[in-house]
Design a protein around this nucleic acid. Structure first.
Lengths: 148, 148
DNA sequence: CAATTTTCCTATTGACATAATAGGAAATAT
DNA sequence: ATATTTCCTATTATGTCAATAGGAAAATTG
């Protein structure tokens, strides 16, 4: 029951882009450095964000990424789902091929449904803009940005 | 972000024991048959429930398992945690060895904490007794219990 | 046009967890 | 003594995670 690095890195990347896009597009290279994430791995995560339309990319020198919408128009759930896939705690909740045959009569399903709804409610309550705001509140977000 | 079979099977086993312990102790063999779970695998899951004091075991003929408390004294969260381990969505929330070094200043942590608290609230709201009650409501829970 | 810089795509790998299967030891009732 | 249960450990197949790596495609600049 853990969120993988895909979702966690994606969230941090989106936050990084949102916080730096006033300086133009954001290169993965820079984001990876600031977020202390492997460049090559972050590239792969970001490619999922491109495929799902979360960011727009521009190639070549002066290339990079920018958001496709306003920061308050992404819920955290949107971003996680784009990279982690469906967040339902059990496959039986969805019409997945590996839904079990007992799912019609299984009472635990009611529990999983309530859990899923509760999770979604929280994850859809917060937007990327909320994360940006939280970051402004915490003094620590200037760290080692000297070499620029 | 999925619950594994360990947690799911554990929950169904506990529910099975709760629903059948008026007929005496419950054998894994019977529970496995009713729940359509591999006997040998369920044995391993149940061993986690013994170690964490969720059930008491009795060996030999007429042996089996029974609950150690009243059904309304187990929250669903208790049972899941006993088998799945800590349910926190990221390790950074706990003082785990693989907590990342940025966790002091990481704003996503606030999000994960809220998610975790929301999940726990739901999982601790429902008890094993609730599952038993739900099962009584649904007519389907008598199925193929003829061969006994 | 050539060189550079970015994104993009695919392959490979080591480590680990999952979900079993399997065999037999220990305990206990008849 | 035998049968039946829990208990313990080993093994395995499969898949995902989290990277690492190399290079192709596109675009800007000189």
């Amino acid at each position: 029951m853990k969120i993988s690095t895909k979702g966690r890195y994606a969230l941090r990347f989106m936050l990084d882009v949102a916080s730096h896009q006033d300086e133009g597009v954001v290169r993965v290279k820079d984001a990876a450095q600031r977020q202390e994430i492997s460049l090559k791995y972050l590239e792969q995560v970001v490619s999922l964000l491109v495929k799902t339309g979360m960011v727009r990319s521009m190639k070549g020198p002066n290339g990079g990424y920018r958001l496709t919408r306003e920061a308050n128009d992404y819920t955290v759930g949107d971003i996680l789902e784009a990279t982690e896939g469906c967040l339902a705690p059990v496959d039986c909740l969805m019409d997945s091929p590996n839904r079990c045959s007992r799912s019609q009569s299984c009472v635990t399903l009611r529990l999983w449904r309530e859990l899923y709804e509760g999770m979604e409610q929280i994850l859809n309550k917060y937007t990327l803009q909320d994360l940006v705001d939280w970051q402004k509140e915490t003094p620590d977000h200037y760290v080692i940005e000297k070499g620029e």
